[in-house]
Amino acid sequence: MDYKVHKKHVVFITGAIATGKSRLSVDIATKYSGEIINCDKMQVYKGLDIVTNKITESAMKGMPHHLLGEIQPNVNFTAQDFCYHAVAVIRKVARSGRLPVIVGGSNSFIEALVDDPILSFQSKYECCFLWLDVSLPMLYSYVE
């Protein structure tokens, strides 16, 4: 007998700083009934909002955000820590019938989550990876 396992969907949005990752994550979460999970190494920490260009409350448009400003700055939050916390949130969001949208520029966090043989992430979730890129003149004008 051939049984197909129905995998839950997960969207990953990554790219360089100031490419519009946060804005796109809010748009996708709004359109597809999702919740956003931060995977930026610095934005997980409380404070540092301006330094890390953390999304503002108004820009969140009421969309739930997880792992954003939740960790004390004196804690060394590793890729393994991210995996532990992210998997718990992803399971909760997916079980509620909502779409987990993972957003941020820390590729080491994403790789740790997706490639960890113990987690078997890819066998449990259907992943869509979006890499945002913008022209340098546009990026420079935005960052200024």
Score class of each variant (00 low, 15 high):
Leu130Arg: 13
Gly62Phe: 03
Val11Lys: 02
Pro64Asp: 05
Val11Met: 10
Thr19Trp: 12
Tyr32Pro: 05
Gly62Lys: 02
Val89Lys: 14
Gly97Asn: 11
Leu67Tyr: 13
Gly97His: 08
Ser96Asp: 09
Ile17Gly: 15
Glu111Ala: 02
Glu111Val: 01
Ile90Lys: 11
Thr14Asn: 09
Ser120Ala: 10
Arg98Ile: 02
Ser120Lys: 09
Gly34His: 06
Leu99Gly: 03
Gly34Trp: 04
His85Tyr: 10
Thr56Ser: 08
Thr56Leu: 02
Glu70Thr: 15
Glu57Val: 07
Ile28Ala: 08
Ala59Asn: 11
Ile110Arg: 09
His6Gln: 13
Leu68Pro: 03
Gly15Thr: 13
Leu113Pro: 00
Pro100Leu: 05
Lys4Gly: 11
Ile90Leu: 09
Asn76Leu: 10
Ser135Glu: 12
Asp49Val: 15
Cys83Tyr: 00
Cys39Pro: 00
Val75Lys: 11
His66Gly: 12
Ala79Val: 01
Arg95Tyr: 03
Asp40Phe: 09
Glu70Ile: 11
Thr19Arg: 06
Trp131Pro: 00
Gln122Asp: 05
Ile118Ala: 10
Arg98Gly: 07
Ile37Asn: 04
Val89Trp: 06
Lys54Leu: 08
His85Trp: 04
Ser108Thr: 06
Asp27Val: 12
Asn107Tyr: 01
Met1Cys: 12
Met138Asn: 04
Val44Phe: 12
Gly47Ser: 06
Tyr140Val: 14
Thr19Asn: 08
Gly34Gln: 10
Glu144His: 10
Arg91Thr: 05
Pro117Glu: 10
Tyr125Trp: 13
Asp49Cys: 12
Glu57Asn: 08
Asp116Trp: 03
